[in-house]
């Protein structure tokens, strides 16, 4: 990390939902440029909530969040401007069904970033090419497979040239045979130096892509470790327990 300002910095972030549920109970995390952070933990531990606080989809009740050293969790922040710099991809892809692939890709650049249509189009085509979907620009989302839709959703986020990408279980709704094509795109981004916070249940993927693993439980970060150590010798009993559930599943599969 050195002397550089972290790209994303969370300090003692507290998120309490309106029903009183404390989803984040003092979370601190610095992510440096080009770093890939894998966030894992049991269901309901606050992983999605954590990602959603970074682009302000969830307002926080305590602590602070900074982007490139600038605190964004202050009154008067222009969230649309922040969100243009922070890309997010969701589990259900959520492409806009009434727009073509190209329409999905052009919306934010032309309406928000005010990029010319021609420029946005050529950027879109270049990115589609990269994810192997150049010939699908004029198709509607429903004409694509789940894996193809998710690749388009990634491209849609990239269209704004974000400084950080937040990926929330982007393969969780996909049929197994489509997981690979989506993860390959993300691996490519990591190689190009994209800063990413990745929530995933694909442990092999987390191990392969992450520079650092964050293990969360009950709204707190319980363990931070490089993947090689986390997946072979986790320190906290909670993390050991959590990883055991995965090994058990694997053993179970072999039996079948």
């Amino acid at each position: 990390m050195g002397a550089l300002v972290p790209t994303v910095s969370l300090k003692d972030v507290v998120k309490t939902y309106s029903n009183g549920h404390e989803a984040l109970r003092g979370v601190s995390l610095d992510v440096s440029r080009s770093e890939v952070v894998g966030i894992v933990g049991p269901s309901g531990c606050g992983k999605s909530t954590l990602l959603r606080t970074v682009n302000g989809l969830e307002p926080i009740q305590g602590g602070s969040i900074a982007l490139d050293g600038e605190i964004i969790t202050v009154p008067g922040t222009s969230w649309p401007a922040i969100r243009a710099k922070v890309g997010m991809v969701f589990q259900k892809y959520d492409l806009f069904p009434h727009l073509t692939v190209m329409g999905n890709l052009l919306l934010a650049p032309t309406k928000v970033a005010k990029v010319s249509k021609a420029e946005a189009r050529s950027r879109a085509l270049a990115l589609l090419e990269r994810v192997g979907l150049a010939d699908r620009a004029d198709d509607l989302p429903r004409q694509l497979s789940g894996g193809q839709q998710q690749r388009v959703a990634i491209v849609r986020a990239l269209m704004m040239e974000p400084e950080v990408l937040l990926l929330d279980e982007i393969t969780a709704s996909l049929d197994p045979e489509m997981v690979r094509e989506v993860l390959d795109v993300v691996l490519g981004l990591a190689r190009d130096g994209m800063t990413m916070l990745i929530v995933t249940h694909e442990m092999d993927f987390a191990r392969a892509i992450a520079d650092r693993i964050i293990f969360m439980d009950e709204g707190k970060i319980v363990e931070v470790a490089p993947p090689s150590r986390f997946f072979t010798a986790p320190e906290s009993p909670r993390a050991q327990q959590f990883l055991n559930t995965f090994t058990f599943q694997e053993v179970h599969h072999h039996d079948e």
């Binding site: 969100r83 959520d94 934010a108 928000v112």
Partner: peptide, 29 residues
């Protein structure tokens, strides 16, 4: 679907743009 406005907002669209370009066309349908 709530995911529609969430992903539009996440792209940096304001609430007004989200309504006009993403939510309203689907709502009318």
């Amino acid at each position: 679907d709530d995911g529609q406005s969430q992903s539009a907002l996440a792209l940096g669209l304001s609430r007004g743009l989200t309504l006009r370009h993403v939510v309203l066309p689907q709502a009318v349908a």
